[in-house]
């Protein structure tokens, strides 16, 4: 095992905003038709983290959502199930039970989600509780206040500590890019998260606007590419929040394909944090199979 040297996070990696946005608009011009469209729609469906993160979440709601996760659209049972469901820690046990034997993972947000404004011990306890309840994946938030202060060591240590508390569970690190202001900050936060042990980096909590955007995602994908080149370690990517349309989902997949390549085009390395996206994907899949659009009433709202 070779030693990985950790870079100096105070060294800004220049990112040209105009260039990033131009690259995204060029990638958006890819025309996804016919078989490649059907393939991508199904792939996107299999990459969804079906999410409910509200104060009013009930066990009943979570159980019903898990049912949708398993069979997204009953008339087409051959469709893939989604990758995971994402809930608050106190709903993990319920979700775990509902998904038993399905291979669908249970992800839990933790570490004083969504603000992250709590002491480390509280965050560790939050994480351990979720893991003990059976969470396969932990979605943590970084302390944006400390990050913006330039206290990068704090961020690194916190992520490393949470990673340790995760044990076997995969760690997704939410950067909350809507609060990081610049692409350079997004890049730095991505690097810190990856070197501190993140299995996935994730754009947003979904509670702050803007949530995931394609330029931010591209910057993070390029960070993943550089990290892979420097260390040989693959890290996953999860844009979350604000992705509602199948067309956007395909655009994200193009970004992944042309930045990282085929190896990342699997639910193990790329996820969508979304819920309303599911029904739009299903609508498009049904359209491709039958030639007609179904009304929204034919798809379950969970």
């Amino acid at each position: 095992m070779s030693v990985i040297s950790i870079p100096d996070f105070n060294q800004t990696i220049p990112i040209d905003k105009v260039g990033v946005e131009e690259r995204v608009s060029r990638l958006n011009k890819r025309s996804i038709k016919k078989e490649s469209k059907v393939q991508a729609l199904k792939l996107a469906l299999s990459m969804i983290d079906l999410t409910t993160l509200e104060g009013k979440d009930s066990e009943g709601k979570v159980i019903q959502m898990c049912s949708k996760a398993r069979v997204p659209y009953a008339p087409m049972p051959q469709l893939p199930s989604v990758a995971a469901v994402c809930v608050y820690p106190n709903m993990v046990a319920t979700a775990k039970k509902a998904l038993k034997g399905t291979g669908i993972y249970v992800a839990s947000v933790a570490t004083a989600f969504p603000s992250g404004m709590a002491q480390l011990q509280v965050k560790l306890d939050d994480t351990k509780f979720a893991v003990d309840s059976g969470a396969d994946e932990i979605d943590m938030v970084i302390s944006r206040g400390e990050f913006l202060k330039g206290n990068y060591n704090f961020i690194f240590d916190e992520i490393a500590a949470i990673k340790e508390a995760c044990g076997e569970a995969h760690l997704k690190v939410i950067l909350e890019t809507g609060e990081l202001e610049t692409y350079e900050n997004v890049r730095t936060a991505s690097d810190i998260a990856m070197y501190a042990g993140a299995d996935f980096i994730k754009t947003s909590t979904g509670k702050i606007s803007p949530a995931a955007t394609q330029p931010v995602t591209l910057v993070m994908l390029e960070a993943i590419r550089d990290f892979y080149g420097d260390t040989g370690i693959m890290v996953g990517m999860k844009p979350a929040g604000g992705i509602r349309k199948a067309k956007e989902a395909l655009q994200y997949l193009v970004l992944v394909k042309e930045t990282l390549g085929a190896a990342w085009l699997t639910p193990n390395w790329f996820r969508f944090g979304a819920s309303s996206l599911t029904n739009d994907l299903l609508m498009q899949i049904v359209k491709q199979e039958t030639g007609v659009y179904q009304s929204l009433h034919y798809f379950s709202e969970d």
Partner: peptide, 29 residues
Amino acid sequence: EATANGSAKPTSPNADLKHDFASFWNYSP
């Protein structure tokens, strides 16, 4: 799954790590 997509998971740092852009999900005409 990584192998199914035609790419082996690397185990050690290597400057020549290749990204495979062609073996999966090619755009239809």
